[in-house]
């Protein structure tokens, strides 16, 4: 029994209650609407940069790409230029595929005992829902820019139209909201229901998923069900984006502050957690290095200066004694 998801669920519920009671009931709207979001942005950016610079300091003396194809060899042997790149261009193509299409996750396989033998099966579901999840999240973030930009740029309007292309109901249903929630639930259920994955899952795996589900649920609630005054919300968010922060007259409902607080917590959480793969994917040494160990000598720049004493120098030091003892020398 893995109780980590219960702890994570409890943590998310408590966070939601804190915001609901704090801003909605007790009325600390300034704290939850202005102070915490600003704090979150500062912690996110400073923490992110700090974490990346920490990684940048780590020595990577040798090329350690994971090779997934034929390496560069003799002219008549065809190299796999993407899966085993030997040039910077190949690495760039490989990285683009990795970051944009999750190529390595696409190769996800499952080991199973079939009869008496072990068999490896290609399993596409993790890749499918992961890519759905990430792009939905990306779309949701882009859509939210309408609350932070005035006037709203054309590309965001076009994006919204595409997202709401089904024209279901009013306010129009956004596809990305539905797919985000569905994919996040799939990823959560995967960790809960598959015994092997459940066994290796930690609270740090469940918490961000549950938090994101919380964000999506509160957002969907506000748009389609309980309703909030979006003009007031834009007043608040535009105040934040222009450094003229203020709580709009009459305040905003508690549910909005739950949503905002969840987002703030998520953003603060990113630099200290596995969510740093947002920046880390660019720095993964098994992907972003060219496999050119046999073409180029890589010297570790962190190597200390070693004082060499060559054989010639040794012989110079001891030549006479060596000749006396009858040992062969190279120079008489």
């Amino acid at each position: 029994m893995n109780v980590n998801y219960l702890y994570s669920l409890l943590a998310v519920i408590v966070l939601g209650l804190i915001a609901y009671v704090g801003a909605g009931v007790a009325g600390f709207q300034g704290l939850f609407g202005i102070f915490i979001p600003y704090l979150a942005v500062v912690i996110f950016i400073a923490g992110f940069i700090n974490r990346i610079m920490d990684w940048a300091k780590s020595p990577v003396p040798f090329r350690i790409p994971s090779t997934c194809g034929q390496q560069k060899s003799l002219d008549w042997i065809k190299q796999n230029k993407i899966d085993n790149p030997s040039s910077t261009f190949g690495v760039i193509v490989r990285m683009v595929f990795e970051i944009v299409l999750f190529r390595s996750l696409f190769r996800n396989s499952r080991a199973e005992i079939v009869g008496e033998r072990i068999a490896y099966k290609w399993v596409v579901w993790l890749w499918l829902f992961a890519i759905l999840f990430h792009y939905s999240f990306f779309a949701v973030v882009i859509r939210h820019l309408r609350l932070f930009l005035e006037p709203v740029p054309v590309f965001i309007k076009i994006f919204e139209q595409a997202d709401g292309i089904l024209q279901v109901g009013l306010p129009g249903l956004f596809l990305s909201g539905v797919t985000l929630l569905a994919a996040a639930f799939f990823l959560l259920l995967r960790r809960i229901l598959i015994p092997k994955i459940n066994y290796i899952s930690l609270a740090a795996d469940y918490f961000p998923l549950l938090l994101i589900i919380g964000i999506a649920l509160t957002g969907i609630m506000m748009r389609y069900f309980t309703k909030v005054d979006v003009v007031k919300i834009k007043e608040l968010t535009m105040g934040l984006a222009t450094f003229h922060a203020g709580i709009p007259e009459g305040g905003i409902s508690g549910l909005f502050y739950v949503h905002l607080f969840f987002v703030s917590v998520l953003v603060i959480y990113i630099p200290f957690s596995k969510l740093m793969h947002m920046g880390g994917v660019f720095l993964s040494p098994t992907r972003n290095l060219a496999n050119n160990n046999r073409m180029k000598r890589h010297i570790n720049p962190w190597n200390p200066d070693v004082k060499f004493h060559t054989y010639e120098e040794y012989e110079d030091d001891f030549r006479e004694k060596m000749i006396e003892a009858g040992l062969p020398v190279e120079k008489e």
Partner: peptide, 26 residues
């Protein structure tokens, strides 16, 4: 990496510099 971080910073502060502090009233 530093160039990457500068791009990161520019992208994530986009709303701040896009509006360049102009107050817009509701």
């Amino acid at each position: 990496i530093v160039i990457g971080l500068i791009i990161f910073f520019a992208v994530f502060t986009f709303p701040f510099w896009y509006n360049h502090g102009t107050v817009s009233s509701a």
